[in-house]
């Protein structure tokens, strides 16, 4: 564990630094790691990177929050109503398979150019895994937990709040992690398609000026929020998993 885990990452970074410097690859296409970091620093200090990163993160967070607020309650509710869930599931599966980029164009028709179509698209992409995840977690509770809860005299709302919801929490955290990953993937594309701000737009402007080191710097900058969100939700997932989570049955 510890340092040795990241040894390989270090090896890759050293190789990235050495290969262009030794002339093994063309430095014009593949600048050394230090040049990329230098560019990352320069763009960070000039304010271009933080400004656009803040805009992108704001969009992703808004869409994600919208999805959480809409999809998790809906999923939890549908999980407890099996007949309605059976009616809706095939339709939802078709809608979930609908490509977010085609939705983007339809949202553009209804909501006009601006922030709303991008945020709608992110909410749409994030919403389906959350809906299916919370629905499945609620619809198939652990029979033993249920019996234990009932044996302790819990029923109705108390059973839901103290047994079913905590038991569903880890599965919901897993779907949160999945959604958060998708949110950033899709946002960058949306910003490349039609925006005048954000990290996706920034990459495109760097591409137009053929500045390789800046493109790499922007790619690194885009990967960082994704990695952080992934780590945060992984932590949440572990925190909520049965081993560490004491069910609130007293």
């Amino acid at each position: 564990m510890g340092i040795s885990r990241y040894a390989l990452v270090a090896v890759v970074l050293v190789a990235w630094e050495a290969a262009p410097r030794l002339g093994l690859v063309d430095a014009g296409f593949f600048p050394p790691f230090s040049a990329v970091i230098g560019e990352l620093w320069a763009q960070g200090v000039s304010g271009a990177l933080p400004r656009n990163a803040a805009i992108s993160i704001g969009r992703a967070a808004a869409g994600f929050a919208l999805a959480v607020l809409a999809a998790i309650p809906a999923g939890l509710l549908l999980g407890t109503l099996p007949t309605l869930a059976e009616c809706c599931t095939p339709l939802f599966m078709v809608l979930a398979a609908a490509n977010p980029f085609l939705l983007f164009h339809v949202a553009l028709l209804f909501l006009g150019i601006g922030e709303a179509p991008k945020i709608t698209m992110i909410a749409w992409v994030c919403g389906w895994p959350l809906l299916f995840g919370s629905m499945a977690a609620m619809a198939r509770p652990d029979a033993e937990l249920l019996r234990t809860g009932r044996a302790f005299g819990l029923g109705g709302w108390a059973l839901t709040r103290r047994v079913l919801l905590p038991a569903a929490a880890p599965a919901i955290a897993t779907s949160l992690r999945l959604s958060a990953g998708l949110a950033f993937f899709v946002l960058i594309a949306a910003e490349m398609m039609g925006a005048s701000s954000g990290l996706g737009w920034l990459v495109l402007t760097y591409q137009e000026s053929y500045h390789a080191a800046r493109i790499y710097a922007a790619a690194v900058a885009i990967a960082i929020p994704g990695l952080l969100a992934d780590s945060a939700f992984e932590w949440l997932e572990r925190k909520l998993s049965p081993k560490e989570n004491v069910y609130a049955i007293e």
Binding site: M192, I215, A223
Partner: peptide
């Protein structure tokens, strides 16, 4: 976690 769209300029 490396976004495929941020790689597109590089692949180009």
């Amino acid at each position: 976690q490396v976004n495929p769209f941020s790689l597109m300029p590089l692949f180009l």
